[in-house]
Design a protein around this nucleic acid. Structure first.
Length: 353
DNA sequence: ATTCCAATGGATTGGCATAT
DNA sequence: ATATGCCAATCCATTGGAAT
């Protein structure tokens, strides 16, 4: 399993990434997450056995040459961390952060921490935007006015920007695809990017031709194509459907299928229901239940989620619950003897006919 | 020119394992 | 209990070559 993943990653020339640690400080010419990859030079020592075998057959001179190239490549395009004017740093065009990401308690805590420290201790990563070129967003920048595009660290940058502080950044050149892959990996390693945000990022990359297919994209970022597909289908849901949730960040991977089933079978009904509950303060699961048309004879029956209690003299004897996937569970709050169980089985059988 | 067929690539689905 | 990651099986569409 893990081997499989490594093989995939190796094929698309992505060196293993170890998560950044908070102890990292400037200057650090070697980006931990992104040694530039150029041809053979990027092959790590931990490459698959086939490569090891190949290397073993090289002459000493060739091996030394290879080693030097590898070392040189690690510094190629890399610069030490520097304090940059936060206003000279822009989000990349692949930026995937929804505005809610900057309104959460998490972000407030991060901002406060950065404020206390007088800046971000853990550097963000940026790449220079060539003067006169169109950067990640917006128009081109005048020559002489150095601008940078964020590879990762959007939240840290945003915090510094709002606090009026300079942002500590590691500057490194990167191609469009490298930028995308690094950004995606960093975000996913930090596990703070929602399914929907991931989908938006992937959708953008596909729409702009960065990758030709879901499969190629998934392979490039070392992810399963199934999960990429789920994220994308969430991101492609109509805006009204996304708006029905308190925040798009509430959308879960596993809801992609039920929502898309309804989108296929009853698009008008879906939109109607979505608009009718927008801003009503329902929980995400309740929204899902309404959107999937449970109990309305429309589309697949997913999740009416409300619990039904069967009571007598004020005591709950049994209750019926429904899972998000539509499984109905009946729980008895008392023991049943064999006779009653058999009777129940017969009742259920007759009921399901 | 048309039809058939196999190979290939891409996407979806459902199930299982693991983590939280 | 739920969310997530991973995978095999399956379906679908496209492509290219062979046969007619």
């Amino acid at each position: 399993m893990a081997r499989n993943l490594l093989a995939k990653a190796g094929r698309v020339q992505i060196p293993p990434v170890k998560p950044e640690t908070t102890s990292e400080t400037a200057p650090n010419p070697v980006a931990p997450a992104a040694p530039p990859r150029t041809g053979l030079a990027m092959k790590p020592k931990t490459a698959p056995g086939t490569l090891m075998g190949f290397m073993a057959n090289q002459s000493e001179a060739m091996k030394e040459n290879e080693l030097l190239r590898t070392q040189a490549a690690r510094f190629e395009g890399a610069e030490p961390t520097r304090l940059l004017d936060a206003t000279k740093v822009v989000a990349s065009r692949w930026a995937n952060r929804h505005s809610s990401s900057f309104e959460s308690a998490d972000f407030a805590a991060l901002k406060e921490e950065i404020g206390r420290a007088g800046g971000n201790v853990q550097p963000i990563k940026v790449r220079p935007i060539p003067a006169g070129s169109t950067g990640g967003v917006g128009p081109s920048y005048p020559p002489g006015d150095a601008m940078y595009e964020i590879v990762f660290g959007h939240r840290r940058h945003r915090a510094c920007l709002e606090l009026g502080l300079p942002v500590l950044a590691l500057i490194e050149s990167a191609t469009e695809q490298e930028l995308f892959v690094q950004m995606e990996r960093e975000n996913r390693n930090r596990a703070d990017l929602s399914a929907w945000e991931q989908g938006v990022m992937y959708t953008r990359a596909l729409d702009q031709g960065l990758y030709a297919s879901n499969r190629q994209l998934a392979s490039a970022i070392g992810r399963d194509v199934a999960d990429v597909g789920k994220a994308i289908s969430l991101a492609r849901l109509p805006q009204a459907v996304v708006d029905a949730f308190h925040s798009p960040l509430d959308l879960q991977f596993r809801w992609a299928k039920p929502l898309n089933d309804v989108q296929q079978s009853d698009p008008e009904g879906l939109l109607k229901r979505a608009k009718s509950i927008a801003g009503k303060g329902l929980t995400a699961k309740e929204v899902l239940g309404v959107l999937t048309g449970a109990g309305q004879g429309v589309g697949p029956s997913y999740a009416p989620l409300a619990k039904i209690d069967i009571e007598r003299d004020g005591a709950v004897l049994a209750s019926i619950t429904t899972s998000v996937t539509g499984q109905v569970n009946v729980k008895f709050n008392q023991k049943l003897d064999e006779v009653k169980k058999k009777k129940l089985a017969a009742l259920i059988e007759a009921f399901l006919k």
